[in-house]
Amino acid sequence: MLTKRIIPCLDVKDGKTVKGVNFENLRDAGDPVELGALYASQGADELVFLDISATLEKRKTMVELVRKVASRINIPFTVGGGISTVEDVSALLDAGADKISINSSAVKNPSLIDALALQFGSQCVVVAIDTRQHEGKHKVHTHGGTRPTDIDTMAWAKEIESRGAGEILLTSMDHDGTKAGFANELTAAISSKAGIPVIASGGAGTMEHFIDVFSTGKADAALAASIFHFREIGIPELKSFLQKASIEVRI
């Protein structure tokens, strides 16, 4: 049976991981390659590297990082952050990334999704949606969730699929950082209508939250950052917890 995926997300700034990572056994927890390799060895199903560097110049270092990650790590990984052209994607895929993730650039220029799917195949095109409720309605936000748009989240999910996205990475800004659980209702609404996998993100605080997002939320994969980085939840214990709850995971 196809398993539910657990995906740690590593924020990378100027080539280093951020978010106060705390790992005793790592030579350099600030090194995205070391940390990624550790997660892979612990049973992470995929990794996401999100570049939050402020400048274009610093972002160029991402290609070099992708090369190092790909040569070291034997599970799939996605790279996101600041990607806005076919050339950006080409460079990252050539360096060994399995998938790329676009967000603000897709909202600004939806035909970028079509262009990427055509040239590289849908399987490597992840479209990230940052969503937040505004007057009771789910609206797409851009620029790290700081800028609201008038776009309805459900409608956008449908549009990106029809344009050739291979997966949806859905982050609820209302839940992100709360540790109060994922946006199960919205995730389920999108995932049950989508013909492509949905990765839920934002709000993970306990192992039960993962059960909820896979069962109630109908998510295909769940992404989290700080709970893994701060070792509040270990990937092996999370997976055996899910297995005991009859959720199919790779162990």
């Binding site: 049976m1 196809l2 995926r5 199903d45 849908s122 291979g166 013909g195 996998p197």
Partner: peptide, 13 residues
């Protein structure tokens, strides 16, 4: 077939 999600993406046995 279009029953489950296509493409199949992830870890299977």
């Amino acid at each position: 077939p279009d029953g489950d999600k296509v493409p199949q993406i992830g870890w299977n046995s």
